[in-house]
Simulated scan of single mutants.
Amino acid sequence: MDRDILDRQAKKGWCAKVIEQLAHDLRTVFPCMKGVSRANMMYMRAVAEAWPDAEIVQQAAGQLPWVLNQSLISSQ
């Protein structure tokens, strides 16, 4: 999903409110899913932009808590 945000913004531009729309769509389709706020989508986008060639897999996500990833990105 991280690359999807960057790809959509590249095609539609920042003004298209891609992140807001994607967060809204995900909450609509998956109402019980947590973590699809606009703020979290911005963090996901920042992760994809900071490490564009890295494959983000479950194993790495399981080793680092999300709040630590947020802290690392916010300190840049």
Results as ranks from 00 to 15, higher is better:
residue 23 A to P: 05
residue 51 W to T: 08
residue 9 Q to F: 02
residue 24 H to E: 07
residue 11 K to V: 10
residue 72 L to F: 14
residue 34 K to M: 01
residue 44 M to L: 13
residue 19 I to S: 00
residue 56 I to D: 14
residue 30 F to R: 06
residue 61 A to R: 10
residue 4 D to A: 08
residue 43 Y to H: 04
residue 37 S to G: 10
residue 65 P to E: 06
residue 9 Q to V: 12
residue 40 N to P: 01
residue 59 Q to P: 06
residue 24 H to C: 04
residue 37 S to N: 00
residue 41 M to H: 11
residue 24 H to S: 12
residue 23 A to I: 03
residue 53 D to C: 03
residue 2 D to R: 11
residue 36 V to Q: 10
residue 52 P to W: 09
residue 26 L to A: 07
residue 41 M to Q: 09
residue 28 T to H: 11
residue 50 A to P: 13
residue 12 K to I: 10
residue 47 V to N: 04
residue 28 T to N: 11
residue 70 Q to N: 08
residue 74 S to H: 15
residue 70 Q to A: 07
residue 65 P to A: 09
residue 4 D to S: 13
residue 35 G to S: 07
residue 27 R to L: 00
residue 45 R to Q: 14
residue 51 W to Y: 13
residue 51 W to G: 02
residue 13 G to V: 05
residue 75 S to N: 14
residue 55 E to Y: 03
residue 22 L to N: 05
residue 65 P to Y: 03
residue 44 M to I: 07
residue 59 Q to S: 15
residue 47 V to A: 05
residue 67 V to D: 10
residue 30 F to K: 11
residue 48 A to Q: 06
residue 47 V to C: 11
residue 47 V to K: 11
residue 23 A to T: 06
residue 2 D to M: 08
residue 14 W to E: 04
residue 50 A to C: 15
residue 62 G to R: 05
residue 32 C to H: 13
residue 17 K to W: 08
residue 51 W to D: 15
residue 14 W to K: 06
residue 63 Q to L: 10
residue 74 S to D: 13
residue 18 V to K: 00
residue 63 Q to G: 11
residue 6 L to P: 02
residue 76 Q to F: 07
residue 56 I to K: 13
residue 44 M to R: 01
residue 12 K to G: 05
residue 2 D to W: 04
residue 74 S to F: 09
residue 66 W to I: 03
residue 42 M to N: 11
residue 56 I to R: 07
residue 65 P to Q: 04
residue 4 D to T: 14
residue 5 I to S: 02
residue 61 A to C: 15
residue 56 I to T: 08
residue 42 M to Q: 09
residue 57 V to G: 12
residue 37 S to M: 04
residue 7 D to V: 03
residue 3 R to S: 05
residue 39 A to F: 06
residue 73 I to G: 00
residue 59 Q to E: 10
residue 55 E to M: 02
residue 16 A to R: 11
residue 38 R to G: 01
residue 37 S to V: 01
residue 29 V to S: 15
residue 61 A to H: 13
residue 19 I to T: 07
residue 67 V to Y: 10
residue 36 V to A: 11
residue 2 D to Y: 07
residue 16 A to Q: 01
residue 45 R to S: 12
residue 21 Q to G: 02
residue 29 V to Q: 15
residue 41 M to A: 14
residue 45 R to F: 09
residue 45 R to G: 14
residue 17 K to C: 10
residue 46 A to N: 15
residue 41 M to F: 08
residue 26 L to E: 12
residue 11 K to R: 14
residue 49 E to F: 13
residue 47 V to T: 14
residue 51 W to Q: 09
residue 36 V to N: 15
residue 23 A to N: 13
residue 55 E to D: 14
residue 60 A to C: 12
residue 49 E to S: 14
residue 55 E to G: 13
residue 1 M to L: 12
residue 6 L to Q: 02
residue 1 M to F: 03
residue 22 L to H: 03
residue 38 R to F: 02
residue 50 A to W: 14
residue 34 K to A: 06
residue 52 P to F: 06
residue 63 Q to H: 03
residue 34 K to P: 00
residue 6 L to R: 11
residue 3 R to L: 09
residue 65 P to R: 07
residue 37 S to I: 00
residue 67 V to I: 04
residue 30 F to W: 14
residue 58 Q to R: 14
residue 60 A to K: 13
residue 26 L to T: 15
